[in-house]
Design a protein around this nucleic acid. Sequence first.
DNA 1: GTGAAAGCGCTAACAG
DNA 2: CTGTTAGCGCTTTCAC
Lengths: 350, 350
Amino acid sequence: MAEKISKSGRRQHATIKEVAELAGVSQMTVSRVLNRRDVVREATRARVEEAIRELKYRPNLLARSLAGGNSLFIGMIFNNPSNSYLSELLIGAMNRCREAGHHLVLEDFSSYKEPEDVDELVGRVSGAGLDGILVVPPLSEDDLLLSKLDEVGIPCVLIAPRTRSGSGTSLSIDDEAAAKQMTEYLIERGHKRIGFVIGAEDQISSHRRYSGFQMAMAEAGLEIDPDLVRRGRFTYRSGMEAADRMLDMADAPTAIFASNDDMAAGVIASAFRHGKRVPEDISVVGYDDTPIASAIWPQLTTVRQPIAEMGYQSVDLLASFIGDEDQAGKDLHPVLDVAIIERDSVKRVS
Amino acid sequence: MAEKISKSGRRQHATIKEVAELAGVSQMTVSRVLNRRDVVREATRARVEEAIRELKYRPNLLARSLAGGNSLFIGMIFNNPSNSYLSELLIGAMNRCREAGHHLVLEDFSSYKEPEDVDELVGRVSGAGLDGILVVPPLSEDDLLLSKLDEVGIPCVLIAPRTRSGSGTSLSIDDEAAAKQMTEYLIERGHKRIGFVIGAEDQISSHRRYSGFQMAMAEAGLEIDPDLVRRGRFTYRSGMEAADRMLDMADAPTAIFASNDDMAAGVIASAFRHGKRVPEDISVVGYDDTPIASAIWPQLTTVRQPIAEMGYQSVDLLASFIGDEDQAGKDLHPVLDVAIIERDSVKRVS
DNA sequence: GTGAAAGCGCTAACAG
DNA sequence: CTGTTAGCGCTTTCAC
């Protein structure tokens, strides 16, 4: 280790200047091979790369952003800090921010309970010198907040918002297609009497997921028994209650599709209370692939959203929205695909 | 809004130079009032502060850290990206990093499955020019990884590690005291026959939590029935199985303390299968306050760790460890306090 | 008390 | 293809 140690005991990293000296070129040339801009001659590039390796040089991101002048301060607002969804979003967003030299600033909006709170909170982000904001659900479904944000004119990317319109940009996943796919998965495995637990009435994803279920059933020529469709509130308990009603029926379903994992876990609890085994006596599927899906037993077959990917892309979306005057020709509301995660809660019936 | 807009359409923030001009002083003076170093004369300071307000000036953190020369690149390694624990830790750490001008770099170690993987992974962080590393559990309990990290000589803060010793620093919470407190909570509410589900054998927190349980029982003069102590694996299913055995007994416990929330949820599922109501027929408590604790029904009374606070403090701990030559007189292994979160899974018995 | 100069490490603009 | 000259916005000397 030939590293210099400053008086503070910190490691000094090699700088571009030292690399340039070792390679016998100018700083600019080093900078060029780093950024692969114009083609540096093969021979010089090799020398520079050798020097970089030797000195274990790593570009200083701070200096890079400062000099480059194109580094955004991006805020991320959320109201549920203890949430695995947030954790994945954060990872995706941070990774992209680091790559692109942007800076992510977290703003906790947990204290937002009453409509009166919104002004203070929005003031906090608008006065913070942020270049743009990433709005994490369920904040992205809050019309009051959204309109206030729009008022102060700060660029926003809404993550999984209620609607895909609006003055800003948004990033969503196709709930309808996903629910349709999951229903088809059940149908392919021989299920015909399928129960469905709808989510909370005020969340748009509830409707879209139910609609996907309806589409798949219709396409397969299967009938939906109205008694097998119950509304829940996206909570464990509401899922349990919904299932209680279905399983009390003489002609109980062979499978239940709950609109999220919490409710699906509640459905499984209800099955236990009714002396039924999962998946032998009844198949259960969820949606979201939250930690509860793999925590419970049997582990839940469910729908997984590419959450980290959304975090990653949301940064780019915001950056391109801020960077360009004209938004023409750009997809301001991209939609991402989901995947079915097969675990142990579904069984084929004959 | 008198903001200048660059050709790229980005907002230009006011700089220290503009503030200085408006206030009729030098940049240096502005810098001084910002950093509250030596006392700037009251009158000048007022002028500067007025200018700052007028221009909505916010110091550029990039430039500040670059010039200051004291800004760390801190890595955070984890192996479970979809985890609410990580999300809170991240929030705490990021907030402190922003305040202190440090940079947090996330490194996903999920691919670490076999001992062979460790060298490549450690190489990734040691070659990345990081000043230090925050090790998130359960990585902080992995002796192989820890020794490799030690070998390459990169400063680490271990979050909730197996032991409080070691060459680096660590941050933990007092599992034993917390479990003792929770047991006392149950005892105060009249419970005498209390079941306990131990966690996975290889995790040190399992032992500490059980030990806290034993201490409280002993101090209260209560006996521990060996049949009421079962080992689980920190999973839902293992909690369910452990409770199955206890609830099959003629003399079933009136309360069960599971060493984490997943197992507690499994205990509740087992109670359902045995036709018991929670908390009317049996009280159940967990540990961790993960999302599952408030997702299930009834909501779990549990122990909450100050996770975000740990993230926050871990950054300072690392920074002070890196910054100073002599570690004398500093607490290298601080221990944080926990809190009991009262919800609906406990009932007083007479 | 306050200011002027120099530079943190890098990249943009223009030369050559 | 490569080097030179300027800064990015701030803080650190060291003067006054």
